[in-house]
């Protein structure tokens, strides 16, 4: 076959795959907007959930619950993940133990989320007696998010040229001074964006939180980290599969819309951080 024709054929094929993934996103959006936009109202976003007649209440407690969860996961997973990435990339070297740790982290990222849920139930809920609660769920989701934060933070650290470290070391800086002053500031945006994306994924998780504390209906908002909570993905799951109200499907889609908007806005924040940093970066 004519090589030019061949090239055209392949690139057309590749372009199609790009269009397909874009198309899937658009279809999902059309579907949930079409089905769910009708239920979105000020009342829907700001009222307590009314379980008898779901049309009179709102998903405010689920939004709050998911927000609390996000704060909890950020609190636990981001510092641990970043610290671990700094250790691995800047200090650890290449010994056998370190290689095992790296392998473990890669594998951790691939563990199914429901398995994390089970782990959280045994360790946080039962062993540490945190009960089914926001804090148990945050810790469980953090376990899932940490490998993500580690991996993206390590990538961010790798993009900082070795010459920044060498320059500082040659002036008599300690390793920590070199990392603190000449590496972290330039890796920060990558670490932040990676963490936000990891966080967004955690906030969309359903399976693990079912096991460790999410509930479909509460009278009020949680008062403490040791309370149960409502959460958007779980709420949506119950509405879509188990609720008998004739409007349940529409309300599930409305909830999905709110969840997706939340996740998208986090992604946009991440993109914005990255964009701001790129503009300032002059190396």
């Amino acid at each position: 076959m004519n090589p030019h024709l061949k090239q055209q054929m392949y690139f057309t094929l590749f372009r199609l795959t790009g269009l397909v993934s874009f198309g899937i996103l658009i279809l999902i959006l059309i579907y949930i907007i079409n089905l769910g936009a009708g239920v979105i109202s000020f009342n829907f976003l700001t009222s307590m959930w009314a379980n008898r007649d779901i049309t009179t209440g709102g998903i405010y407690p689920a939004i709050v619950g998911t927000f609390y969860l996000g704060v909890g996961v950020a609190f636990f997973s981001v510092p641990v993940g970043i610290a671990c990435a700094i250790y691995l990339n800047e200090y650890a070297g290449h010994s056998l133990v370190i290689r095992m740790i790296r392998l473990a982290i890669r594998n951790l990222a691939g563990v199914p989320s429901i398995v994390y849920g089970l782990f959280g139930l045994v360790v946080f809920v039962q062993m540490l007696q945190l009960g089914t609660s926001i804090i148990a769920a945050s810790l469980t989701l953090s376990g899932m998010t940490v490998p993500w934060v580690i991996t993206s933070s390590e990538e961010a650290l790798k993009t900082v040229p070795q010459s920044f470290r060498d320059g500082a070391l040659a002036l008599g800086a300690t390793k920590w001074q070199a990392v603190r002053g000449n590496v972290l500031p330039y890796a920060a945006s990558g670490m932040i964006t990676g963490s936000i994306i990891g966080l967004a994924r955690a906030m969309g998780e359903t399976a693990p939180i079912i096991v460790v504390g999410a509930t479909f209906y509460m009278r009020g908002l949680p008062d403490s980290p040791f309370d149960k909570f409502m959460a958007l993905p779980y709420h949506l799951f119950i509405l879509a599969t188990q609720h008998v109200h004739p409007q349940a499907q529409a309300y599930a889609a409305g909830t999905a819309l709110v969840l997706v908007a939340l996740i998208f806005s986090m992604t946009f924040v991440a993109m914005f951080v990255r964009y701001r940093f790129r503009k300032r970066k002059d190396w």
């Binding site: 040229p161 010459s163 920044f164 320059g167 500082a168 070391l169 040659a170 008599g172 002059d282 190396w283």
Partner: peptide, 17 residues
Amino acid sequence: ELRKKVGMVFQKPNPFP
């Protein structure tokens, strides 16, 4: 302490950004 006394300039200019 040693590197404070024995400094180094590298092949490729490496000013900090």
